[in-house]
Structure formats: structure tokens, C-alpha cells
């Protein structure tokens, strides 16, 4: 049984009078296994949030099916095993984090003792204790995001659906969220999240899916999707005689001066190795030799360029 599964999922929002309806999502087949960290990628308007809203029961699909832990998302029980963090989460401003967690525990059907127990574990995990008594009104973006995460964890759901959890956070905040997701995987949870920060996705995701204009372009393991071929090699050398410099520059894609010496970008490993041989033969120093492989960002951009 998949943690999340959609078959032919489509959502068409009603257009304004006289205007055609706009398909936001079309024939989406998606499978997310248990205990995976799954990245859901796409440009703005690709249909990521629409998919997430369908999965969370906030909107109804026009066609197709969607299930969380094998239960149709149109059924209330599907939300029993689901925790949701919306993009830029909003909470009641007049409540404190402790009251907020208590409120969501109540509407999740948890008893008083269980709510107290969950507050203990969640507040510790997300460092909420020091701000437990402060009203949400004065919270920074990072604090709100932490509280949003805490709310998603209330009820100990098996599947977490996070919409742009790193959006607007500073590097420290993003790192914290990444670590949290990895920690949740060790706890046996499934984390499904959308993001624009492809570096973060590449670092932590087991699998990804890429959407474009409401349609699934590709899904699979990150290491399988990326060819991992070397796209180019960066070579830096110092003390190069002018003639050798010119010879290497003639085979390079580009060359420039840097603080450490001459910086060459070679198109492949063969030419890079040849350049290194010339550097050594001339008695110059090799400062750096870096083969650069395709990143998820390169792959994503390549896909976007390919699509009409």
C-alpha cells in the first residue's frame, strides 16, 4: 500500500462567466511509498498546491482518484493519518503555541492526557517551550513555520504533506527543516513536500516528481533521474608559461584569471586530463581539479526547456 497514490487526478476550476475553465491539474498518476522523503517540484502554477489541497481534502478533484494510506481522500478517515503544513501557515493570532497545539489536538479528537503528552514531545522537538506562552501575533516567519510544523505533527500522523516548507526561510531555518524531515523519516514517517529550493530537494529526497502545466513530466529516484555524467571540469593552475596557457585555453570552454591562478572550464574529462598533463610538464602548480556533475537544478531546467 502506498502512502500517497493518485490515478488520473484532474482539477478544473470553474472559469468566470464567458471564459473557459482553466485545468489546473491533468491526469496525474503519482505514487509515494511509505517512509520516503518525496520532493514535488514544478514552476509556479504547475499544479503543486492544487494536488496538495486535493490530498488534504480542501478541494475536490474533478476527475480521478487520490488516496492517503489507501483511503480515499474524500473520506474523513483519510485525514486521520495526515499532517499538513500549508505555504505561509496562518494560525489564530491571539493563541499561544501551547493553546494552538491543544486546539488542534482537540479537533483531532485527542484526549486531554494525550494532548499533554504530544505537547511535551512536539515542543521539545521544535524548541517551542521558550515561546510557549507568547501570542502568535508577534511571531517571525521562522517561528510561524516551526509552529506550523508542530501543528502538522499533532496526532502523530504517518504522512506529512508540506507545501513549500522552506519558502522565505534563512539558510539556518532551511537547514533546521531539512534535519527535521530526515529525523521524521527515521521515525518511520512519509514526508511529501513541494519546494522551489532544488538544492535542498536533491540533498534529502529519496524520490521526486516534476510537474509542468498540471501534468506529470517525470517521477523517480533522484540518482536514477540524474545522469550523473560529468557536464564539465574546472581546472585551476598557477605559474603557467604563456604558451601552455594558450594551448589549454584553446581546448577550454572558457578561461579567466582568479585569485588562485588561471581558471579553465574544460568540456570533458579527457581534455581536462590533457590540461593537467600540460600543467605538470610545464612545472606549474595544479591548484584545483573539479569534475562538475549534473545537479537536480540542471535537470529541472533541462526539462523545462524541453517542454513547450
Amino acid at each position: 500500500m502506498y502512502a500517497i497514490e493518485t490515478r488520473g487526478l484532474a482539477k478544473i476550476y470553474r472559469g468566470r462567466i464567458g471564459r473557459p475553465a482553466a485545468p489546473s491539474l491533468d491526469a496525474l498518476d503519482l505514487t509515494v511509498g511509505s517512509n520516503e522523503i518525496f520532493g514535488f517540484l514544478g514552476q509556479n502554477g504547475a499544479g503543486k498546491t492544487t494536488t496538495i489541497k486535493v490530498l488534504c481534502g480542501l478541494i475536490r478533484q474533478t476527475r480521478g482518484t487520490a488516496a492517503v494510506c489507501g483511503i480515499d481522500v474524500r473520506r474523513r478517515e483519510a485525514r486521520q493519518s495526515l499532517g499538513y503544513l500549508p505555504e505561509n501557515p496562518y494560525f489564530y493570532e491571539y493563541l499561544t503555541p501551547r493553546e494552538t497545539i491543544n486546539f488542534y489536538g482537540q479537533i483531532g479528537g485527542l484526549g486531554a492526557k494525550e494532548r499533554e503528552r504530544q505537547w511535551g514531545s512536539i515542543s521539545e522537538l521544535l524548541d517551542l517551550r521558550e515561546i510557549a506562552g507568547q501570542r502568535v501575533r508577534g511571531f517571525s516567519k521562522g517561528m510561524r513555520q516551526r509552529l506550523g510544523f508542530a501543528v502538522a505533527l499533532v496526532g502523530d500522523p504517518a504522512v506529512l504533506i508540506l507545501d513549500e516548507p522552506m519558502s522565505g526561510l534563512d539558510p539556518l531555518g532551511r537547514r533546521r527543516i531539512r534535519e527535521l524531515m530526515l529525523h521524521l523519516r527515521t521515525q518511520g514517517k512519509t514526508v511529501f513536500f513541494s519546494s522551489h529550493v532544488l538544492g535542498d530537494v536533491e540533498q534529502i529526497c529519496d524520490r521526486v516528481a516534476i510537474l509542468s502545466k498540471g501534468r506529470l513530466v517525470v517521477q523517480g529516484r533522484v540518482d536514477e533521474l540524474l545522469s550523473r555524467r560529468v557536464t564539465h571540469v574546472e581546472v585551476i593552475a598557477s605559474g603557467l608559461p604563456e604558451t601552455v596557457d594558450s594551448e589549454i585555453a584553446a581546448t577550454a570552454v572558457s578561461s579567466r584569471n582568479s585569485e588562485e591562478g588561471r581558471h579553465f572550464v574544460l568540456p570533458d574529462l579527457a581534455r581536462a586530463n590533457d590540461a593537467v598533463r600540460r600543467v605538470h610538464a610545464a612545472g606549474a602548480s595544479l591548484v584545483e581539479f573539479s569534475p562538475v556533475r549534473e545537479s537536480l537544478e540542471d535537470y529541472f531546467l533541462r526539462l523545462q526547456e524541453r517542454k513547450p
Binding site: 488534504c56 481534502g57 485525514r79 486521520q80 499538513y84 496562518y90 488542534y104 479537533i107 479528537g109 506550523g148
Partner: peptide, 14 residues
């Protein structure tokens, strides 16, 4: 409008 409803209706409540 304030989107507080997202986190509420995504809970197992009717």
C-alpha cells in the same frame, strides 16, 4: 480569507 481554515479542515473533522 485568512487561510486559518486550511489546517483545520485537513484534520479528521466533518
Amino acid at each position: 480569507d485568512k487561510r486559518t481554515i486550511y489546517t483545520i479542515l485537513s484534520r479528521p473533522m466533518w
